[in-house]
Amino acid sequence: MADIQHLTNLVSQVRRDIVRQVHAVNSGHPGGSLGCAEFLVALYNEIMVHDPSFNMDGKNEDLFFLSNGHISPVFYSVLARAGYFPVSELSTFRKLNTRLQGHPTTHEGLPGVRIASGSLGQGLSVAVGAAQAKKLNGDDKTIFTLHGDGELQEGQNWEAIMYAAAKKVDNLIATIDVNGQQIDGSTDHVLDMGSLKGKFEAFGWKVVTIEKGNDLASIIAGMQEAISLSRKQTPICILLHTEMGNGVDFMMGSHKWHGVAPNDEQLEAALAQNPSTLADY
């Protein structure tokens, strides 16, 4: 059973890490990062079998690929708090000579990152390849991914979605962060994608919907359901309904905080809403 209190504490600390990283360099993407805090905390601390000593090949480990690389602040915080690299390194986010580049990369050798992402729409193809490599290696672990909902406007996703179903890539669980927002406004306003569930199902995927994507118990239950559905000839999609900016009241639910850093006052307000539980970096 999950220790929800422990995970809740971790989420609070991760939210602090997110806003502090972004504030320190007055750049980065807090909105989507905050919205995915519970998901990534649950994934790395409850769901995946993984080894923070980090080996690129990740044999006999579950692997995660972040496709919407701009939410690097939450990814870096969760990796650091899971022991992949020193938590103190979060202070180097987006600074010259850092391993914590604006968007995640393997190029600087940051443990925990297996692919560069940031230019959108590429992560699912990479994940499909990694899933096929696992099958060739007789490795029964699972590939997890995260994508933005707006990111699905990139056509490459649909090439990968078609392939994964046709070739029965069933060791793959792809999660879509359905926060309904993108840079220019709501996804419905910018480019209405209709029913994502209908689209994935029409392509031959099984879909699990997590309505409360900022609730740890709901996330864990939904992911366990997805795992139970995997390895049955079809890839699995999780539609994770989150709130952009969740956990910081003035950032919640708006695309305005997609790529804007809080000022000093806003930082204090954000931190006041998310108590320090594991000590700040």
Partner: peptide
């Protein structure tokens, strides 16, 4: 046949998949 991946007319997906296949030690 198990080491051959027919991706269809979808070169972008092919390049991404090739990148992914290296993770686990394959040479695509």
């Amino acid at each position: 046949p198990e080491r051959f991946f027919q991706v269809g007319i979808a070169e972008a997906n092919m390049m991404g998949m090739a990148a992914g296949l290296t993770i686990g030690g394959k040479i695509p």
